[in-house]
Design a protein around this nucleic acid. Structure first.
Lengths: 161, 161
DNA sequence: TTAGATGCAAAGGCTTTGCAATTCT
DNA sequence: AGAATTGCAAAGCCTTTGCATCTAA
């Protein structure tokens, strides 16, 4: 963890960005909760107590920087808000299971199949990034629906803006 | 094509939506250009000449309805604007190749691999939809960069909002 | 020292919504 | 007739930006 942060700092400097306190705390939060998918607002809320001076616009600007150098990745679950996840160098390729009822986003290891890569390379398309998401109901919500605890589709989160 | 539209109309009625002139022209446009990925604004522009009265908010509301009944699908290329594509019943599963330089979005046949589906089902996750996108440079832009016609990365479209 | 980064408030841009008028069924 | 739909304008919401101030290097 400490090493991850040290590497990140040197990467930032190498890319001609400064290592500011704000960038450090934001990156540290994302790295510490590498399975979470934070919105800018959530990051701001999470850090506000310890860093009362942190501005929301700084969070937004920092996310742009961190994504630019490849330390984090942006994810869109379809609700009109960008979410971000830490992206370690050795991060395994994964896709997202997005529950349309509770909004939970879960990673699942799943490499891009060779057959798919071949198809794309055949198009002479140079891949630099990818995103694979599956929408549906997580096991938790499926169980709750089956047990009659929730049944009204109106309870679904509003995924399509 | 005519049959597609007829089926669509009966589907709308079955789902308790009315078949209005606005819904018809919008659906007809999307169905006629099934390989395109229209933004609400583009749909509005495309139809304004023939239907001067069509309002942009009606386009937005119609897109919600058409997506709700499963006639179209929403796509996010990461620029903060929603795009929509016609989704026929017999549409082959496909993913999107999104060029980060020219913004072109291209479909490519590519079914969800069985191994991936198995992994997800193992999580007891009930899939209702999915989205697979690959970002990078299309063959056209790759060629232009190689030929020195474009080289400044600043020309890239701004994909991350 | 000084170019880059931050905070705040204001502006932007896409999308949604209130409401009166219109139109499918 | 009556409820759904439409258009317009206004509002919402997430995100970006201008600018004076601050700060890492």
């Amino acid at each position: 963890m400490q090493e991850v942060l040290r590497d990140a700092k040197s990467l930032l400097r190498r890319e001609n960005y400064r290592c500011t306190a704000q960038r450090e705390v934001i990156l540290e939060l994302l790295a510490r909760h590498s399975r979470r998918h934070y919105t800018a607002e959530e990051i701001h809320q999470s850090l506000r107590d310890e860093n009362p001076q942190l501005g929301l616009s700084t969070v937004y600007r920092t996310l742009v920087v961190l994504e630019d150098v490849g330390l984090i990745r942006r994810l869109d679950v379809g609700d009109g808000v960008s979410r971000y996840e830490f992206d370690a160098d050795d991060a395994a390729p994964h896709c997202h299971l997005i529950c349309i009822r509770c909004g939970d986003v879960r990673d699942i290891a799943c490499p891009v199949p060779q057959e798919m890569q071949s198809l794309i390379e055949a198009e002479s398309f140079q891949i630099t990034d990818y995103s694979m998401s599956f929408f549906g109901m997580c096991s938790h919500c499926t169980r709750r629906v089956r047990d009659g605890k929730i049944g009204d589709p109106g309870e679904d989160i509003h995924l399509m803006q």
